[in-house]
Structure formats: structure tokens, C-alpha cells
Nucleic acid binder design. Structure first.
Lengths: 351, 351
DNA sequence: TGTTAGCACTCGATAATGTAGAGTGCTAAC
DNA sequence: GTTAGCACTCTACATTATCGAGTGCTAACA
């Protein structure tokens, strides 16, 4: 038995109706709301076939049918048409690119959560093997130095170094020259033991300072930089199929904890261009087996890439979600490239 | 009618029992589990009095009694004894003070949420009217400058400035001298229009650069710096009285959104030393009218103060919570003061 | 005057029962 | 191949009954 024209049309109607209403779809509904002019009995036969083929499921004996994961997958791959017209809800939103990156990301997540009514996440942009652009040590006061390291894409790292004894200006300049000379243009991954020991040798009595700077640089390559921002976790409560049982607790925990999300993102960040849809088990996050996850990669330019995603019920409005994510992608891509004239980035650290 | 010895003892027992079980306490229970040797009938009379006095409430006609807000308040103020012995669960936790501040705060919030089983929050340490310690502009490349501003407590801010035309080293030095001269030692609030215009005048053709730096400094005084970290939001699900109805959604939203929390903290940050308990409506957060909020102020030294707090059901284990918060306070206070030898703080920004 | 036993009463929680409606599968007829 | 008709299933919802915990009140007691 194969999927013929008619079966597809019926499947399409079932899914679309279910996406709207969230309730099992019966044969009579289909019979009425399609132009097939078939009686409910005929539809019933077809639906029985569709169930055998695995595209739809009957929650219980006397209920209508709902799409299975396979059904959703078919819908996303073949039936869905993206409604490029209706992006009006997103057009209003223009990213304020004068803001700090962190606040931009939070904004995007919030806005997306608001317009879609799903939970959202967005990761900070990262660049693999980001080269060091600039290293500088300055004297804060007699007891403290400030080390500043700038990587490609203007990722700035600071570290305050406490001195045990004062340092004169000449030494400071020497150290700065030394550090820049050995480290500039190098990616943290490429800093070999050879470079390090050479550097330390030349530093003489100030080895410890060099060590601290190197430590700071080392931290930049640790994955912990993949910050994940989430928003709209409470949207989950809008979907009974997600908010019943202890499902909610686990889901919200995952959104709060973010660790699993970060892992998921880093595992799936390989193929860029595409927007990806994970239905149910397709994402490897156990707590999200009843959800669909849709992710998109954005590219700020200079190799800075991040992921933005939506977490919602399987019966999410895929068309709207894809359209919105595309719009976000576009806006984010433009964000950095077209605004060379503006300074970005201010960030605070308490000690 | 007044609270005599016996009424207090009964009230104490009611509250303690309710804290444990979470269920309305009946007269018979009290009669059995106190050494008063009174029949349930007598207890009933006393409980009726206690209800008239407003210390306990009857959820419905044929149920036992539960403490009212006034009852909890009395308990916290007069009955509770902090169990200083049982801090074993916290003793294990030692803050890793080599970490970045942000991660320390997240750790503390998480740990506290885990040991208490309530939701927790912690704010980044801030210093009122923090004086500028150090200003520096460096050349990243031909097109970009990096502005670094360090405030007291080693709060570091960075801003990348895009140049329209190259800048020679001499001008850079001049600007640096100028900026440090006019701004060093000044709190952002104290930078008068006079200083600004004087600065801009001296800057000559590089007014725009000075403006950017001033903007960066201006941002430091905006309240947005009060970062709030939360953890354990899903602990709410452990308490039926909080997790029923749409209560949960609002509560979790408040914990996710954090804005209300930030406002609450800044409004109540005045009197330091104390640990404060807000029962029900006593905190002005509407969504938390069914919760108790306990906050403590920690002091990292150099005037850097923050707030750590716990949000739980009214029937929270106040004794344990207070003890834990005191321990956190102690550890946080020691964190910065005793570790002058260690450098802290590395922080990244993508542009 | 304070304490107690006894009893009727209230109310929530739970289970049992009944009913209505939606939807199916099957069969026989078109 | 399509359809009408019918018996059947199952959920959702409302109704009712039952149980137990707990109270308030009264009358008796020390």
C-alpha cells in the first residue's frame, strides 16, 4: 500500500486541523472540510490505511486521529509551505545593534518567545579556534595589573592580576612587547608548549604574570563560553500535552539548567546553512521527547556563529516558526556586517 | 484575650507540625504530641481562641488549622530557634574563589537550591557610586580602538570603538592622558557637565571618541548592571500549594524574567546586616503572595554588596534557611577579603 | 472555673454510577 | 469503489454515595 494523492490530501488535512485545534480529528470533520466530496465512511477507510502506514495514531479506541512523529516528519518535509507573506509580526522587531551582545541575545530570545508562544533559546556566537588579536597588560595601581586579551570578532577578556611586589613601567612595556610578539595572530589551540616555555624563559622573574595571562587565554578555549539564553519557558503551560504530569518540571528544568541544551547545540552545530527540525525523539534530549525543536544557525560574520532555537509541542506551527527563524537569521547576519560605524560591546565584571 | 504560655506552646506545635507535614493540624494531633496533657476538646477551645487572635486559619469548616501570615511572623520572630549545629549540609560546599564572579554566583545559587529544595536567587555585587580607577584606550588595529574602564572593586568595562580614520600613537597617548586626568577617582555620578564639556573641548577633533568613552561610563551607572541569577525554579513543583493552578506559571515566569526580583532587591537593599524574612504579602511581589522570601546581604569588601535570597512556600523550613544563608554570607564575605593573592575575573564578550 | 466526654454536624476526598457524545469498524447495499 | 446504517467503545462530565477527619457545642465533672 502506498501513499496516493488522496491519502496525502487527507493526511494534510488531519495534520493542519490538529495543529490548529490540538484535538484528535475525526472522519466526519475531514469529510466536511475537504473538497474531496467523500463520505465519512470512506474517509474512515482511508484513515485506517494511514494508521497502518504509521502516519497517524489513535489515542484511544473511540477517538479521532492525531499525527504520529512520522506524520509530522512527512508534513514538514513535503506538505508544509512556508508563508513568506505573513512575517508582519516579526518585521516590527529590529535588533538594536548598539546594545551589548548579551542584551541583544536576550532580546531576541524574548521577542521570539513572545511572537511564537513557544520556549526559545539562543547561544552566544562563538568562533572556533579564534585567533588572538591583541594582548595588553596595564597597571591599575601599585598592587594590581589588568590583563586584556582581545580575540577575533572582538571578544574581550579581562583578568585582574594581584602583584606581590610593585612593577616598574619598563618591565611592563617589556612584558607587553613579549606577549604581543609571541601570541598575536595565534589561536589559543595553536599555542604550543614550545611557545609557552619560550615565553616563560624570556619573562625571567615575571613568569607568574605570564602564567596568569596564559591561563586567561586558556580559559577562552574552554567550551564554557557557549552561553545559552532561554526565554518563554512558561509558554509550555499553554500546551496541555506538555504541561500535564511531571513533564513540565523536567522541561522547565532543562530550560533553566541549559546544560543539556548547550550539549545539544554543540553536537548539532555542524551543518550550518540549514534550519533543522527535530521531532520528538529526533533530538537527543530525553526530556523533550514530547516536543519539537527547531534550530537555525546565525552568522555574525568574521566566523562568529551561534544557534537560535525554538522548543514547543510537536503540534507547533512549523510554518510560522520557520519563517520567523529565517527572519531572525537575516537580521542577525546583517547585524554585525553592516554596522562597522558603530561601537558595540560594553561589559562589566565585578571581582 | 492575650497569648499566654499555653497558647504559645500550642501555636508553636501547630506551626512546627504544619511545617513538617504540610497538612492542616487537628486538635487531636496536638493533644497527643505535646506534653501538656490536655484533651483534644480543651485544645479545640484554645485553637478557637488562636483563630480569633488571627494566628491560625481554618481552610474549611471540618479541617484542622494552618498558620496564618501573622502566625508565621510570630513564629519567625519569637518561636524559631536557629539550629546552628546542623549546618553540615553546607559545610561541604566551599566556594571556588578562583572562578569568575559570574560562575561563582551561579554556583552559589545552585548549591543553595539543592540543599534547601527551594528556589534561589543571587544578585551580582554592586557598589553605589563606584569611582573610576582607570581608563585606557588602546589601538586594536587601524580601524578599531578598545576602551577599557575599571571601577572600584575591579569592575571592568570594555567597549570597541570603530574609527572612521586612523589615529596616530601620539594622539592616543594624549587622549589617554586627558581621560585619566579628568576622570580618575571620580564616580560616574559626579562627572559634571562642566567636566564633560571641558574634556570635549580639550579633545579637539576627537570629540566623538571621548563621547563613546563617556557613554560607556554612563552605562555603568544604569541599574541594568544588577544581574540576577536564579536557580531551582522547578523546586516549586515540590510544594502542592504552590504548584497548583496557574500559580506556578506566574511564579516561574517571575523567576525566569527576573525583572521583578531585581526591583524587589534594589528596593529592599537598604538595611544591610540583617537577614530578612518576607511572609506572603510582606514582599511586594504580587506573584509571590503565597510564598515566603528570605534575603541576606553579602559583602565582598570594598563596598561590593549583593543579595542572596530564597523563595519557597510559606511553610518553609525557616530555621534551616536562615542557617544556610548565614553560612553563605560568611563564605561570601571571606571570599574576596582573604584572597588578595589570587587574580579573579575573566570575562568574554562577542561583538 | 477550667477540663473533659460525647455527639451531631460539616466538609473534602474518593469511589461508584449513569449519561451523552464523538468516533470508529463492520456489513450490506448501491 | 463508495456509502448508509448500526452496534460498539471510550472519554468526559455530572451525580450520588460513602468515609473519615475534625470541629463546635453542651452537659457533666473536679
Amino acid at each position: 500500500m502506498e501513499l496516493d494523492e488522496r491519502k496525502i490530501k487527507i493526511l494534510d488535512t488531519i495534520i493542519r486541523t490538529y495543529l490548529e485545534t490540538g484535538e484528535p480529528v475525526g472522519s466526519r470533520t475531514i469529510s466536511k472540510y475537504t473538497d474531496l466530496n467523500l463520505s465519512s465512511a470512506t474517509i474512515r477507510n482511508e484513515m485506517s490505511d494511514l494508521e497502518d502506514l504509521g502516519y497517524i495514531i489513535q489515542p484511544h479506541a473511540s477517538a479521532g486521529r492525531i499525527p504520529s512523529d512520522k506524520g509530522y516528519r512527512f508534513y514538514v518535509d513535503h506538505l508544509m509551505t512556508e508563508k513568506d507573506k505573513e512575517i508582519s509580526d516579526m518585521k516590527d522587531f529590529v535588533i538594536e545593534h548598539t546594545e551589548r551582545m548579551e542584551s541583544v541575545l536576550k532580546q531576541v530570545a524574548q521577542m521570539l518567545a513572545q511572537t511564537t508562544n513557544y520556549a526559545t533559546m539562543i547561544t552566544s556566537p562563538v568562533k572556533k579556534n579564534n585567533a588572538i588579536k591583541f594582548v595588553q597588560i596595564s597597571k591599575l595601581d601599585e598592587e594590581q595589573l589588568l590583563a586584556v586579551v582581545v580575540l577575533g570578532g572582538n571578544v574581550v577578556k579581562n583578568k585582574v592580576i594581584n602583584l606581590t611586589e610593585p612593577m616598574d613601567n619598563e618591565t611592563l612595556m617589556k612584558l607587553n612587547f613579549l606577549l604581543n610578539n609571541s601570541l598575536n595572530g595565534k589561536a589559543p589551540m595553536d599555542i604550543s608548549l614550545g611557545i609557552i616555555s619560550g615565553l616563560k624563559e624570556q619573562a625571567g622573574e615575571h613568569v607568574d604574570i605570564v602564567s596568569v595571562v596564559l591561563d586567561a587565554i586558556a580559559e577562552t578555549i574552554t567550551q564554557e563560553d557557549l552561553e545559552v539564553y532561554t526565554s518563554g519557558a512558561t509558554n509550555i503551560f499553554k500546551y496541555p500535552e506538555l504541561s500535564s504530569s511531571e513533564n513540565v518540571s523536567n522541561l522547565i528544568y532543562a530550560l533553566e539548567e541549559k546544560k543539556e541544551l548547550a550539549e545539544f547545540v554543540s553536537e548539532n552545530a555542524d551543518s550550518d546553512e540549514e534550519i533543522k527540525v527535530y521531532i520528538g525523539d529526533e533530538s537527543d534530549i530525553k526530556t523533550m521527547k514530547d516536543c519539537s525543536v527547531v534550530t537555525a544557525t546565525y552568522d555574525l560574520g568574521e566566523g562568529m556563529k551561534g544557534t537560535v532555537g525554538i522548543i514547543g509541542p510537536k503540534r507547533m506551527d512549523y510554518e510560522k516558526v520557520l519563517t520567523n527563524l529565517k527572519e531572525i537569521k537575516k537580521q542577525m547576519n546583517g547585524l554585525f556586517n553592516n554596522t562597522k560605524t558603530k561601537g558595540i560591546e560594553v561589559k562589566s565584571d565585578g571581582e
